[in-house]
């Protein structure tokens, strides 16, 4: 059974972290990165060719993590696979003991290192969630054919509280949950006010009772990174106040400031009604996750 599911269902504030697979075939590098996360988080998200850059497959990296004693969250984007491949990979993942999936649209292929690739987008992320739910709960694939063994998968989806139009964000979240999402991981939160507006809208629709919402955080390393994320990364909202705060400390204290902002955000999340966990995306900085979790008062982990 999914460890993440277990933690959420006993009502504990869950912690997940992200681990990007290598740009190569080295299995050791996956486990080396993940080592920093051991006993610090409840589950480890493995990104799926994030920003459309070719990396080791998420499914393979998840399998390595599973063998290493982690509870992996298999991220799957609909950009690269049609409905045949997506459903097939869900069965394969379950067979390998992977118990969580995060169903995503994926960054557009134009952003990565294969801009000439055909974008598949046969299903959208919501249709994908729905398909996985039908596989698990009804034992059927799209079109109705029966499976001889349904996959055992805890289903996740993403939400970006900072994208437009805000009024429609709760509708889309509701569609994801209606489709079958058990848990939601959000885009990185820097604009807490906007996040709280969004989660209040979700609560008004009763959605925080229907799915577990985990708020995303990414520790900033420098003011430059903050500006880059604000200006260059799709769907990111970094308020000027955050950039000013990073700018306001001496260079050798900037990482500490980034960690501090991150810890404060998690603290706020813990107090937010409907906030059921935190998802730490420390990009190429996995070694800091343990410290963040500890300083946010979330150690030891429950299970």
């Amino acid at each position: 059974m999914s460890n993440l599911k277990k933690v959420l269902e006993i009502g504990k504030f869950a912690v997940t972290a992200e681990c990007g697979p290598p740009k190569g075939a080295d299995p050791e590098s996956v486990l080396k990165k993940a080592k920093f996360l051991k006993n610090k988080v409840d589950a480890v998200n493995v990104t799926d060719n994030q920003t459309a850059i070719v990396r080791m497959s998420s499914l393979a990296a998840c399998s390595l993590l599973k063998t290493g004693g982690f509870d992996p969250v298999l991220q799957m984007v609909v950009r690269d696979r049609n409905r045949i491949a997506l459903q097939s990979d869900i069965l394969g993942a379950s067979a390998l003991g992977i118990r969580n999936v995060l169903c995503l649209s994926g960054d557009h292929q134009i952003f990565g290192n294969q801009p000439q690739a055909m974008g598949v987008f046969d299903l959208d992320s919501i249709q994908f969630v729905q398909a996985v739910k039908a596989m698990r709960d009804n034992g059927t694939i799209l079109g109705g054919d029966a499976l001889n063994m349904p996959p055992d998968i805890f289903i996740g989806a993403a939400a970006n509280p900072f994208a437009d139009p805000l009024e429609f964000r709760a509708v889309r979240l509701s569609k994801k949950i209606m489709a079958g999402a058990d848990f939601i991981q959000t885009q990185c939160i820097y604009n807490l006010k906007r996040f709280e507006t969004w989660i209040n809208m979700a609560r008004d629709r009763g959605l925080t009772e229907k799915a577990f919402i985990l708020g995303g955080v990414t520790p900033l390393k420098s003011p430059g990174m903050a500006k880059y994320m604000k200006n260059k990364v799709a769907g990111m909202d970094v308020p000027d106040g955050v950039i000013k705060r990073m700018d306001g400390v001496p260079r050798d204290k900037q990482r500490e400031e980034g960690i501090r902002i991150c810890v404060e955000t998690i603290e706020r999340l813990k107090e937010t009604p409907g906030g059921k966990g935190g998802h730490i995306m420390a990009i190429e900085w996995e070694e800091v996750v343990g410290e963040i979790v500890e300083r946010a008062g979330l150690l030891p982990r429950p299970v």
């Binding site: 649209s105 134009i110 959208d124 992320s125 993403a158 970006n160 994208a163 437009d164 799709a234 769907g235």
Partner: peptide, 19 residues
């Protein structure tokens, strides 16, 4: 850009597409 039938995705900002 992503042919979504249940959009918008998280890349919609100020009425513009992320691409």
């Amino acid at each position: 850009s992503k042919q979504l039938l249940n959009g918008p995705c998280g890349g919609s900002m100020d009425g513009k597409c992320e691409v």
